[in-house]
């Protein structure tokens, strides 16, 4: 992993402003580490699309279709039985398993997609090499820039609300 500079802030407003400022100054490849989701950051940092929802839709429809076809095939062709004189193709009854499986498929597909899109599991990331980043899950807000081509320390230190700068990676 390349070296990155982490700018530590103590509140979200400063973090968002700093990100916006650096962005307008043309800094690319920025990321942020926050204990909670800061919605305002997303239009600023413009992370690439992740397609999790699309995956969920596809997985859900595929699972639903699969289960519906399984039911239809087994009830009409593979092992048809006279069950209460009901029609073999009992599509209203088939709908229940279809719906539930569809939702499960979407959930499971999305879960996998989410984990993979986040690049997880990644238990040993240089981000964890220092104890200084522990606040990222508590009450500190980190703006992450690639060290290569980052503005100099002086410029950075003039950002509002900046508490500290940490280096990670090599």
């Amino acid at each position: 992993m390349t070296a990155r500079l982490l700018l530590v802030f103590t509140d979200t407003a400063s973090l968002v402003d700093a990100a916006r400022t650096l962005r307008t100054e043309g800094v690319d490849g920025m990321d942020a580490h926050t204990p909670w989701r800061v919605a305002d950051l997303e239009p600023v940092l413009e992370p690439p699309a992740h397609g999790v929802r699309r995956t969920m839709l596809i997985a859900g429809l595929a699972a639903a279709a699969g289960v519906f076809l399984l039911q239809t095939w087994s009830a009409v062709w593979f092992y048809p039985l006279n069950v209460g004189g009901r029609p073999l193709f009992s599509w209203p009854a088939f709908g229940f398993a279809t719906f539930e499986t569809g939702i499960l498929g979407a959930a499971a597909g999305g879960f996998v997609a989410m984990i993979r899109a986040c690049g997880l599991p990644r238990l040993h990331d240089p981000f964890f090499d220092t104890a200084e980043t522990e606040g990222a899950s508590d009450d500190r807000f980190f703006l992450s820039l690639p060290r290569e081509g980052a503005p100099d320390r002086l410029r950075l230190s003039r950002l509002d609300g900046l508490a500290r700068i940490v280096e990670v990676g090599r």
Partner: peptide, 17 residues
């Protein structure tokens, strides 16, 4: 935690899901 770092990318994906 699977190595969660609270990255903005993470949060975006997380929120999507």
């Amino acid at each position: 935690a699977l190595g969660w770092r609270g990255s903005a990318r993470h949060w975006q994906v997380w929120q999507g899901y």
